[in-house]
Amino acid sequence: MDDFQYHAPSSVDGVLSALRGADDGKVLAGGMSLVPVLKLGLAAPSHLVSLRNVPGLSDIEDHGHCLKIGACCTHAQVAASSVVQERIPALAAMAGRIGDPQVRNCGTIGGSVAHNDPAADYPAACVGLGATIITDRRKISSDDFFGSMFETALEEDELVTAVCFPIVARAAYAKFENPASKYAVAGVMVAQGDDGVRVAVTGAGAGVFRVAEMEAALADDFSADAVAGIGVSSDGLLSDNVAGAEYRAHLVTVMARRAVEACG
């Protein structure tokens, strides 16, 4: 690991000014993706700006129509939250299956969405549930937030402070895990809410994507049978030693159907 300057400001403004003052600053939240990258020498930022001393970023608030989850909430915190379990059980269940206990107790929702690993679970949860990403300066719809792998709508010096998840009528997440890394090979969040049905897929492609054909079919008939026969093209899907593109495409359909079944 190369040397870097470490800052731990006690406010969002302090974080932003530290980032602006750095040649190549990176925000450090749980560090579950950033620290391994540093250890392997794949990145060498000049400054790390930790969020650990910033108050108020780890709250989970019930706003009636939505849950606002602070950026520094860990996956374990979300999984164990009684309000999340009650209001959006699919989200709590999803968070409880991220990585392993160590990852869940360090990794944060803000870090996950800002990093946008193509195999991470939160991008599918955000897009599938129709979440809004709150930053220090604006609100961004998750449909607009997530780009291709590791790309987001965030500005260089912009900080995710919370994610708002609307309360939906029903939702479920089905994940096929990479047996080695436990990342998603194909993870599908299916939700039915006020703005209709959403089907969001992570792990299979270069970034989270929605499956319009499945959404339309489910809007018409919210049943497992409605999606069981809908395939997705393998064009552009990822391919690695665990799963080729064809297999991933197949798994997307299977996981979508299982998510619908789990919606009850």
Binding site: N178, A180, S181, D240, N241
Partner: peptide, 8 residues
């Protein structure tokens, strides 16, 4: 397969 990310 040079790490536990892909060596199971």
């Amino acid at each position: 397969t040079g790490s536990y990310m892909n060596y199971t």
